[in-house]
Amino acid sequence: MSLSRLLERLLQLIPVLLGVSAIAFLMMALTPGDPVQIMIGDQSITPEQEAELRRGLGLDRPLLERFFIFLGNALQFDFGTSFYHRRPVSDVIAERLPATIELSLVALIVALVTAIPLGVLAAIRKNSILDRLATVGSLLGVSLPGFWFGILLIMLFAVHLQILPVSGRIGYSSEVSTITGFLLFDTLLHGDLPAFGDALRHILLPAITLGLPMTAILMRVTRTSMLEVLRQDYVTFADAKGLPRRRVLFRHALKNALIPTVSVAAIETGSLLGGNMIVEAVFGWPGLGRLVVESIFLRNYPLVQAAVLLYAVTYVLLNFIADILYTVLNPRVKL
């Protein structure tokens, strides 16, 4: 991809982010509920104290003025102070972000390593029992609600069989000091293999729950595109060349069949962000998703706005990555 094209794509980010900021800001402002009232709760304070509190949070100014202050600060990567934590929003988010990224990455890996082989097998053995099972399974995977499936997994593996933990990222006895915030990484950096195993056991169920819909979608995409590719002349020609079956299937067919899979995977990774909120709640996972849900209830405006912006940037970047991967896999396409 040419540099100018890259620059163009990055410039396209600006209007998107402006729009997203406006929507995020307005949605919070228009949602009923007053953060000051929520903070006060049952305590009795004087109207002067309340006005003072409101001024301290900057909520006494007109809406438009607040929006431009928010924008101006956001441009300098200053997202304000979390009403609830009384600390910079960026610090609070940075604390929670690794847990969410880690969970999403593991979910993505789980989805890729199950979906692609299953999709390929289902396509090669079309109409076999395996194919039918995979098709029915993927239908279930798309339709099962994450919170329900997660609870089901917890009941089976944590409560009934007692082989996996119910919730959290790691057991108390295995905790290690933070280096990167990614526990699977940190435990390895400490050379603490039992702790790594413990973290892995903790992440397994939430990652499967989070990755399930994606697995289902990717499997179907891979199966369909593999079936399509296997009908192509170049596969017949590869067979006519007397190449080993392995090579025909994996080098000739799969490389082409993966083009749609990879694009869909990159875009679907964005949807993992949304799935995170539910899965983190079910599994008590201390990530960004749970933080955002809590913050919405507390009308913690600055934090929600910053998080929404972060989601938007991630989403756009993932689409961008999808485009790049597309050109890598498909030499006919130049961005």
């Binding site: 170049y234 007397g242 490389k255 082409n256």
Partner: peptide
């Protein structure tokens, strides 16, 4: 057997197809 046939195809009997655009793999 199918495996023995793979040894014949491409080595002893070769084939060209009607349209090279679709017969050549676009990704390789």
């Amino acid at each position: 057997s199918p495996e023995e046939m793979r040894g014949v195809r491409g080595r002893d009997i070769a084939m060209t197809m009607q349209d090279a655009l679709t017969a050549l793999n676009p990704a390789l």
